[in-house]
Design a protein around this nucleic acid. Structure first.
Lengths: 245, 245
DNA sequence: CGAACACTTGATAAAAGTCAAACGACGTGG
DNA sequence: CCACGTCGTTTGACTTTTATCAAGTGTTCG
């Protein structure tokens, strides 16, 4: 029996891992820490040497612009690897805050270095997942740059659903948003007022329904069309990675 | 004497490389290919197994949305590593087109796999540079999501200048744009008409000057302020990477 | 020389932002 | 246990920003 690890579980959805690899990954999660909703995990421009695996809850990364407006860069879910920016920068380029009560597992960046040295296959896998994040980011870029407010809301919701489904097989067409409309707006470049109008409109059109914070996507096909959405988690192909040793 | 390689040169600006590593990297560039301005290098949704190192010229990646509008995802410069998306997807998530006459060095993704297996330090370095790209992308995200048209133009130009300076030490405050105003607009989520108005305004205010396609940044401090720009290439710290073996 | 292409400019329209106010839920302290 | 304050949502009136449409001006290249 090998130690359990949220992160190893996640990675092995893509690629079978050896016991040694699983054990090595589980060592990253040796120091779980609870954080309350709203707690600041990392502050922009402050020195950082730690990375995190998110075990439970929800965390966001964001920056605040000089005029006070906020851009949420990414919302993280359980099993996600957070703070890879600290591998290149001594000072955090972005802040991290818990959106809901969460459990994070901090580890030193030197632990990551040792892992990459000793397990090249894990290194390659992390490289690939980092590329996957890059593609997710380009999708958001196209969304912000070239699509309407309604399209952005639609694709944002589809993306959340698909990412939650990665780790939770029970989820089919509904999920807890756990984000205020202002937070949604800050993620997709809109004001909370306008997000509200769009959500409301989509509800009236029968695209979604809501009941205390829980969102149900009623017509996914049409939502995908409206949001120009493509699921980037399906169709991944990691076959070319080194075979298990 | 070790074979020269555009890519190795670029990487060694961050980290001294061993001769073996340089040789291995240079093998990625064994098949240089010339492409003309406008040539399609990769078409979205078509099967891909190749990656590229860009040796000369300029290449862009982009997607076309169903309504016909285009979002340019990234502009690549000499020394850049292109198409890492093909490491995870069999079908290209984005198109690649040469913006100016260029020289690209295609190599098979299996060659990359072997490299990652044999040179863990190079693998770690690629992982880091991929994180660097991710941060660059988040900056653009904040730019598109939360800043004005003028700010976007300003930060776009500063970013181009800083990236060109990475490989060309001669550049100080001016560079050849080699992009139409429509292309700039497609990169930062504006129409060509509005890009024109902003550039024109910035010229009148003495922030920039132009002479046949060449842009000179006259007041960088103020441009940085207007664009909320931070240079992400300075201040990188790769000290924690495995020592040279 | 002419066609294609990029740039420029003006008039008008649409999308999203701002401001303001009211409502409801929720939690906390008196 | 209720009153009150805080926070998030909802709605309306109005403003600003940016897009759209259209036409004219170079410039380059075959």
């Amino acid at each position: 029996m090998v130690a359990t690890s949220c992160f190893a579980d996640r990675l092995s959805k893509h690629l079978p891992l050896s016991d040694a690899e699983k054990t090595a990954l589980s060592r990253l999660e040796e120091n779980p820490r609870k954080v309350k909703r709203g707690a600041m995990i990392q502050r922009v421009n402050e020195p950082v040497t730690e990375l995190f695996v998110l075990r439970e809850g929800r965390v966001m990364s964001f920056v605040i612009l000089p005029d006070g407006s906020r851009q949420i860069l990414r919302v993280y879910f359980p099993g996600d690897f957070i703070g890879s920016a600290s591998t290149i920068y001594n000072k955090a380029p972005e802040s991290l805050v818990a959106i809901s009560d969460s459990v994070i597992c901090p580890f030193d960046k030197h632990a990551l270095r040792r892992l990459l040295e000793e397990y090249p296959r894990v290194a390659a896998l992390l490289f690939l997942l980092s590329n996957n994040e890059r593609v997710a980011m380009t999708d958001r870029l196209a969304s912000l740059g070239r699509t309407s407010a309604k399209a952005r809301v639609a694709s944002f919701m589809l993306d959340m659903l698909d990412r939650l489904r990665l780790t939770d097989d029970d989820i089919t067409d509904s999920f807890d948003l756990k984000l205020t409309q202002e937070e949604i707006g800050d993620a997709i470049g809109l004001t909370s007022v306008h997000v509200n109008r769009m959500i409301r409109q989509m509800e009236q059109e029968g695209l979604i329904s809501r009941s205390n914070g829980r969102i149900r996507l009623l017509d996914m096909a049409r939502l995908e069309e409206i949001g120009h959405y493509t699921n980037r988690h399906k169709h991944m192909d990691l076959d070319w990675l080194p075979a298990m040793s």
